[in-house]
Every structure is written in C-alpha cells, then in structure tokens.
Amino acid sequence: MAPLLELKDVHTYYGAVHALRGVSLKVEEGEIVTLIGSNGAGKTTTLRTISGLERARSGSIKLKGKSIEAAEPHDIVRLGVGHSPEGRRVFSRMSVRENLEMGAFLRKSGPDVQKDFKKVFDLFPRLKERESQAAGTMSGGEQQMLAIGRALMAQPKILLLDEPSMGLAPILVEQIFDIITEINSRGTAVLLVEQNAMMALGIAKRGYILQIGEVTLEDSCAKLAKNPKVREAYLGV
C-alpha cells in the first residue's frame, strides 16, 4: 500500500536560492515522523512545499499515492493535510473561536464540527477559557495551542507541525509534546519539524536529518538518539 505521504527527490527554490536539493521522505498512516536540522536546513521549506505554499520545481509529492505537487494549497487542505505553520500565524484580530471556525472553513457547519470543537477544547482546556479573547492578545504557548487546534479542525489525515516548541517555557514544551502524542494516538499521522531534537526524538518513531536542503540520515528515532554524530550536532552531548 502506498504510504500516506511520500516525497521523492523534491527540489524547491526561493528565487535563485536552491533551498531543497532533492528531499525524499515518507510518513506512514498513524506514524509520528520528525524532521531535524539546524536553522536554514530547509525544514520549514519542506513543510511549505508539501502544503503547496511553495512550488517544487521538480520531484514528486504523493498523498496516498495521489500526486499533489501541482495542487493549490486549498485543495491540499481538502485532501487531508493540516499545517500548523512556523510562527503560529493565528488570526490575531479574531477570537479563539473564530480562529477555530476558520480551521473548519471547508467543512459544512453542523454537529460534526461541533464535536470537533469539543475535542479541541478537551485537548486544550486553556482555549476553552479564552474562547472569546482576541488570539493576538494571548501568550505564545496559548497561540501555539490555537494553531494546532485550528489545524485539527479540518480533520487532517496528517498534521504538519512546524517548531511547536519555539519560544515556549520548558514546562509548556512538555505539555505540547504530550498533546502531540495524544493527537497521534487518536489516529492522525504527524510530521514534526523541530529544533528541540531531544524532545522530537523522544516521541517520534522515525526521523530524518536535514542538512542544507538534503536528507543526510534517516533511521528509527531510537537509533538516531544513539548515533554519535546526531548526539554531537543536535543533542548537544
């Protein structure tokens, strides 16, 4: 059976800058896969290319065997890719509730959507408390929760998470990672981009190391965590 998401030899450019130099990776149903790399390695670009925000110049991106590399971002959402982008990007002048409603933009409002509101509020009780508050006035951690909750409202088959731990206090980071595990255990596959390699390797099943736009290593997370090179470069030990 075709993997849920599969990238083969994807090249993406920003103008003249060759940002992705042949990235190949896959995510199976129900997996958490992490993409680790330093600043500028191309992690965010990889996610943006999957979502169609950037165009791959060559290579293929397949969702359940179906090519999506030429599709528009809004169609890719419809096909089941949820994306919580770098920097959270919540709609700052809208309330928490309106943000979540935007997450369900493509769905018919009805009991199903209401159920998902409840699910998101169960995962993030904090968002329930802040339901009518303008998103831009919340703390970084709360905005991160909202960004993830908003992506979940579209009922994605796979969730792309870009640096969910960025700028958060350690205790919040743990909380967010627990919730990612929880989301995954409910059946959503996750492709997790992180600088916090320690945490990411802790919850993911497999991992890819990205360096200057290329995948230089892929393995199970258990093995990556033991690999001396990975330990030195990304775990700081």
């Binding site: 528009e72 809004h74 959402v77 982008p85 990007r89 709609f91 809208m94 935007m102 933009f105 493509l106």
Partner: peptide, 24 residues
C-alpha cells in the same frame, strides 16, 4: 458570510488563510 470571513483572514495573513482552505 463565509466569503467575508475568507476576505478578512486573507487580508490578515494570506498564507495562514490558504492553509485553512481559502482559495486566495
């Protein structure tokens, strides 16, 4: 309206809006 909301989110953040499924 739904289209009106799409207009507001697109003017706030075009990329985030298209990640919600808005046809920009």
């Amino acid at each position: 309206t739904r289209t009106g909301r799409a207009m507001r989110t697109t003017s706030m953040d075009r990329d985030a809006s298209s990640l919600m499924g808005v046809n920009i």
